[in-house]
């Protein structure tokens, strides 16, 4: 059975002057997949991510996201969601206001937003929290809400940047369960992270080093291939030798 590709990258090259940040990247991401994107600082991870999110254009190569070519970034942006650990919700706004703002940005009317908002709050067992300031919510709840908000406009792909680093183990489990559930609904989850134990949760991971993809497979297959007990060891093994003087 041929799985549907939602991200197709062919020979992606991105140069900044004489510096090649991305060197002929080629990979596919499938519908409903949890895809981990790993790399050391400066490996070109952020650059590639920006291109996939429609924030930057490739120097050469072909990139298609949700069926849209990277030369139409505005269209891409409508079909993706984004959540980062650092910024997600406005702390001085209430839960409802954040949701309404987000819906409004994606061109939804209040009429469309309201029922969906209630549904979202119900699903998170957040009913009654609508008028609470984000500031007053515990970290774990904020994180879950931020994820739900990133999915509010029903994107085809959601990009997560270190989604569960620093949260407590219980919240973390709940969060990954939300991610599984999202993927099971056919939404692709694209995770970038520094933390290799986050990578263990992904269906497939790719490791970047010096602008190239040096590994791409399921975590277990990669662990077997390199004979390591964890993705962390594996990552250090792959990424370390190349950066004596990085």
């Amino acid at each position: 059975m041929e799985r549907e590709k939602v991200i197709e990258v062919r020979d992606l090259v991105k140069r900044f002057g004489s510096f090649t940040a991305n060197d002929r990247l080629t990979f596919d991401v499938y519908r409903g997949e949890i895809f981990g994107f790993l790399g050391a600082n400066g490996a070109g991870k952020t650059t590639a991510m920006r291109i996939l999110c429609g924030l930057s254009r490739p120097t050469s190569g072909k990139v298609t996201v949700a069926g849209i070519d990277s030369h139409r970034p505005e269209e891409i942006k409508k079909r993706i969601g984004y959540m980062s650990q650092r910024f997600s919700l406005y702390e001085d706004l209430t839960v409802n206001e954040n949701i309404e703002l987000y819906g409004g940005i994606y061109g939804m009317t209040m009429k469309e937003i309201r029922p969906r908002r209630e549904e979202l709050l119900r699903r998170l067992s957040f009913t009654g929290y609508g008028n609470t300031l984000i500031l007053a919510l515990p970290l774990g709840l904020r994180q879950k809400l931020a994820f739900a908000v990133a999915l509010f406009h029903e994107p085809e792909i959601v990009f997560l940047d270190e989604p569960t680093s620093g949260v407590d183990p219980v919240t973390r489990r709940q969060f990954w369960e939300m991610i599984y559930e999202t993927a099971s609904r056919g939404i692709t989850v694209f995770v970038t992270t520094h933390y290799m134990d986050e990578a263990e949760y992904c269906d497939r991971i790719t490791i970047m080093s010096e602008g190239r993809i040096v590994a791409l497979d399921t975590p277990s297959a990669l662990r077997q291939q390199y004979g390591t007990a964890s993705v962390e060891e594996l990552f250090v093994k792959i990424a370390r030798p190349q950066r004596i003087n990085a």
Binding site: Y90, D92, L93, E97, E100, L101, Y102, G103, G104, I105
Partner: peptide
Amino acid sequence: AFVRKEFL
């Protein structure tokens, strides 16, 4: 939506 947010 964005203007409203700024007011808030």
